[in-house]
Amino acid sequence: MNTLSHTRLLLLLAVAGSSLAPAQAAKFKITNAPAPAVMLSIGNGPQVTEVTFKIKPAELGNGVPIRARPDVRIAVANRATPNNSRVAVLTVDSSIPLRNGAHTTPFTTISWISRNGIIPSGRYDGSTSQFQFSFGNSQEISDRHSFYYDNANVLEAGAYTGTVTYTLTMP
């Protein structure tokens, strides 16, 4: 290398060093395969929601259904990969009757109306595993149910209480 060439090379390096930032690169990797999951949320408060039917004496047993308060929001979600590879099923256990001391009344006297029709309207059948609806992963679905008591019979006075348990399963 002659002196001129050597000088040009140094000059070139000097120019390059003065006008360009050091080389940088970014690597991107999104691992979107979290563990499968199901989520079930029912109600409106921080604890278990209590749905209450209040009947006026003049209305007792007249066959006109009584609407409960409050309406209940039901939200479900499931997650798995790949999408639409699994199905989640929502069922409900209403097998234990409402109780007022020694007196009982079955949950079959309670029905509900779905606001959006996603989780359909229906009536408790008193079984341990009543099908509600199913959906593929990965979705988040919610609906709101208004509950009605048949009010077709006269029961012993008092407060009848009971609990239904919803179960969301993803085999």
Binding site: V38, I42, V51, F53, I55, V72, G158, T161, T163
Partner: peptide, 21 residues
């Protein structure tokens, strides 16, 4: 909310009360 491999199952409850006058 339940996560994990294999079959998954989550529960939630609703309490009912009918007050008969």
């Amino acid at each position: 909310t339940v996560t994990g491999a294999g079959a998954l199952s989550a529960n939630a409850r609703v309490d009912f009360q009918i007050t008969i006058p």
